[in-house]
Amino acid sequence: MSKVRQQELTFSHDLPEPTPDSKHWVIYTRKRDGAPYKWAGYVDAPDVALALQFAREHYGLDEACIGIIAHQHEDASDGEYSLEPLQPTDAAGDDGQAWTAFTLERRGGNHQTAGTVNALDAETAIERATAAFAGPKVRSIRVVPSNCIHETTESELTIWRTHDMTYKLAKGYAKDVRAKWSRFRDEKTYEQYRKDDIAKHF
């Protein structure tokens, strides 16, 4: 532990001036080429370059990742959440700018990219996206103007690292934990504990 962490700190001065919040970005990651981008989280950053940089080193390293997109929170328009799967509408037309559509399949789930539609405004974009992408599971649609979506570029494809990262995944410990439990518990008791673990607790 560094000395600074150990020292007894006292403060007699005022706090520095407050800094206002910077921009609110929504981050999506994709696992492999051709896979949809799925919602991963948020970052606060003053510009898109830093937003993507932060996203790479956080959400890009949660699980295998080859690409990241980001948009400002204020650029998204969400349709209502429906308790039943959305029925495809017959909204047609392709006038207006391009919108990227995201679908949401379950309560508390993550939005993921579905494709693009053209529309003059967000409301029409949601209707047209519902016509195009409402499947048997989709409960809600989000649209974002495609020109507000920023993506990591070709030259930045290395996001997930090649070295062993199982140290930060629960499954990286499964074998060792089982082997170590065998000193204390018989196979049957352990197996019951493990199953119970997953079913009821974790």
Partner: peptide, 9 residues
């Protein structure tokens, strides 16, 4: 906070 996470990675 965001750069804390990046530097830690």
């Amino acid at each position: 906070l965001e750069e804390d996470i990046a530097a830690s990675s």
